[in-house]
Design a protein around this nucleic acid. Structure first.
Lengths: 241, 241
DNA sequence: TCAATAGTGTCTATCAGACAATATTTG
DNA sequence: CAAATATTGTCTGATAGACACTATTGA
């Protein structure tokens, strides 16, 4: 229909942003980092809680992933966590400043690393329980982004080793099981859990580890920190439909 | 359009595009629609095959999905197929014209609908076998986009009803099984297939249907055309790891 | 009655889930 | 040895896959 002759670059370009849903498990709860928007004039949603994110900086970010890593580091001080793209949302109506498209990532960060970074002094950032977050009004369409991301996380935890990225190494199987239980919000059978984890062959024994437990548990590390392992089946209690 | 009230909007905005991987099954093969890029001066990758796509038009497209539907319709004449987002790719290096981010979708279209649209006269568009396409050099990073999309499709077909969107209604179970076999590239057991499909309760009987078969098979329709059904498990032959 | 395809039955190895038992360490 | 937690063992119901069988129709 329209044949391009010569260079035709669009005169009106959408705004391009990246938003990151940063998860951690703190105090036996799945928690999410939100930032409070400034109150400067004309800023949309002033004072409102929002997902950490912002405009892609074409001078600074070589890729979208780099941009997400930058946002993450700015807000948490954490360097190399697990980061995965959820998808993108774009349209004319989602930002009052104009047609915009955002690329959404989620990150899994061990709480201990966040503490170590001691960067949480970012005054406008705060951790919220995921359940709480669901009920909050967020800036832009961030409620929708967050809901989709939480669903993605929960469903993927059913058949992957993702929760391992919420723990500092070395970790023990009971600790890992606890991460699963927190994210899934339900208890998981001990025995089945162990056989499943060991069968997946993504853990490396690294010697027993000190803990407050009477019996010293085995410590493990991940063989590959880049990507999670996919289990052949889903966790599913007998009664589940 | 953009109100300048001293707000700091980025002066350099990335290019925003949408690319669509359009799949169909034609002649017992999974095929993909590619378009040949024009040879006008200064156009990048002149004469090269590429995924159908292009810039978001902020005046025309209300959302990214609308933009994808538009691209799809322009190239095939098809109106409402199955469309799903794969993800987004963005960076400084992927388009010589500047920092760009593309939003990738894939579509499943029954071949019969493409024929009916009789729109295939789009001279610069052509269907290629997916296997062939993998070996081709494509414009931009489209090879990577296509590969990721094909992987997504194949893996998702293992546990969803996606192949149903490759058939016009009403269709028969043997026909549906054939779609699975073509996409997965391996035979599927008849009996297990049938029980799985019927157990998933996403099909509606609509009476037996004429075919070239000696015995008239039952015809089915989808109960919901919006989204596929997720099976509790994956297809997996005994020997599979 | 045969050919060809649609559809059903059945057997079995596998295995996840449930629960119970045992091992190990500290006080 | 008691308490607490880590780790292993066993039983069983469910089921996916393999394969063989029956059903239906037209020539």
């Amino acid at each position: 229909m329209k044949k391009q002759t010569g260079i035709h670059l669009p005169t009106h370009r959408p705004l391009t942003t990246v938003d990151v849903v940063i998860f951690t498990v703190k105090e036996d709860q799945l928690q999410v980092l939100l930032v409070q928007r400034g109150s400067a004039d004309q800023e949309p949603f002033p004072g409102c809680w929002a997902l950490p994110g912002g405009f892609v900086n074409v001078a600074q970010d070589a890729t979208l992933l780099d941009c997400a890593l930058r946002k993450l580091h700015e807000k948490t001080g954490v360097q190399a966590p697990y980061l995965e793209q959820v998808g993108s949302w774009g349209g004319a109506g989602r930002d009052p400043r104009g047609w915009s498209a955002t690329h959404v990532y989620f990150a899994l960060v061990p709480w201990q690393e966040v503490q170590a970074a001691a960067h949480t002094n970012v005054s406008d950032a705060q951790w919220f329980a995921a359940e709480k977050c669901i009920t909050m009004k967020l800036a832009f369409d961030h409620h929708e982004l967050f809901q989709a991301t939480l669903e993605r996380l929960r469903s993927k935890v059913e058949y992957t080793s993702l929760p391992a990225f919420l723990l500092p190494e070395p970790f023990t199987l009971p600790q890992l099981q606890h991460m699963y239980e927190v994210v899934l919000g339900r208890p998981v059978d001990k025995s089945g859990f162990r056989t499943r984890m060991l069968a997946a062959e993504f853990l490396q024994e690294v010697g027993t580890v000190q803990s407050d437990a009477p019996r010293a548990p085995m410590g493990y590390r991940l063989q590959h920190r880049e990507a999670p392992v996919y289990f052949p089946r889903t966790f599913s209690p007998r009664g589940a439909k």
